[in-house]
């Protein structure tokens, strides 16, 4: 299998790879480039099995299991997410297509209707399957097509971090800015703060567990809390299969129907 540029496997995971050490302080653009390059498992294709654990402010929990598969082709990364449980959402599937240059598309398959539909622009601001992630978070266009600035270094726990401020260029972005705390040793995002258009903190994603997979650090559990509602989404990766042999045909809208 030919390795090209580092592909993404699952945008939700904010997975980063181990990488370079910077002796004399990288620029904001360099940090951003490293962050985006490490927003991947580093494999041509792969699969994972994971769960979204949703917790309301009063402690009510809901869990949704899903599988993901991703594959890179020249100029495009495709990701399929299929929900397996609970029964009410089982069979619902998403296809996320990211093209170089910021163009992307999202499709959803609704098993009750046996139809696949595109997801429109404003829908990108909506909640993804009841979680604290938006559809816009999935394609990370707001992080890729943005202006970057480095804020003073900070620590998360004992880990020294670059603090990267990202200001999305796109008018339709739900965020005014995103602040990422990237561990200097490997650019793993230990904390990401999302600020709404009104400047207020919207939510914070914190990394809880990192696992070395195939020699690369991968975020396998993250914790996202909505700053207003205190709704929480824990994303837990149960199983990762790097280099999985996933056929191209799995990433067509028609293939979402396989459930």
């Amino acid at each position: 299998m030919t390795r090209r540029r580092l592909p993404r496997l699952l945008p939700l995971a904010f997975a980063l790879l181990g990488g370079l050490a910077w002796a004399d302080g990288p620029s904001a653009d360099e940090v951003a480039r490293q962050m985006l390059a490490r927003d991947a498992f580093g494999w041509e294709s792969g699969t994972l099995r994971a769960r979204l654990v949703l917790t309301t402010a009063d402690g009510k929990r809901d869990e949704r299991a899903f599988e993901g598969a991703s594959k890179r082709a020249p100029g495009v990364v495709r990701t399929v997410v299929r929900f397996r449980a609970p029964e009410r959402v089982a069979g619902t599937a998403f296809l996320l297509v990211e093209r170089d240059g910021g163009q992307g598309e999202q499709h959803v398959y609704l098993p009750a209707y046996h139809t696949t539909r595109r997801i429109a622009g404003r829908e990108r601001e909506g909640s993804f399957m009841g979680s604290d992630f938006t559809y816009a978070d999935l394609d990370r266009r707001d992080l890729r097509d943005a202006r970057y600035a480095l804020l003073p270094d900070e620590k998360v726990g004992e880990a020294a971090c670059f603090v990267l401020e990202t200001s999305p260029k796109a008018e339709g972005s739900p965020y005014a800015r995103v602040v990422s705390f990237l561990r200097k040793a490997d650019f793993v995002p230990l904390r990401v703060q999302f600020f709404a258009k009104d400047g207020k903190l919207a939510k914070t994603t914190s990394t809880r567990r990192v696992r070395m997979v195939d020699g690369k650090p991968v975020v396998v559990e993250s914790h996202t809390e909505n700053a207003t509602t205190h709704h929480v989404t824990d994303l837990i990766v149960d199983e990762i299969e790097p280099h999985a042999d996933v056929p191209d045909s799995a990433f067509e809208p028609a293939a979402l129907e396989r459930g």
């Binding site: 654990v53 402690g59 726990g157 880990a159 914070t204 914190s206 809880r208 696992r211 837990i236």
Partner: peptide, 22 residues
């Protein structure tokens, strides 16, 4: 939380709002 493995690195972020373990 989660089916943690022995070799997982647990990130210590004191600002994380704790929730019941998975």
């Amino acid at each position: 939380p989660g089916p943690a493995r022995a070799d997982d690195e647990i990130i210590d972020d004191p600002t994380v709002a704790a929730t019941p373990a998975t």
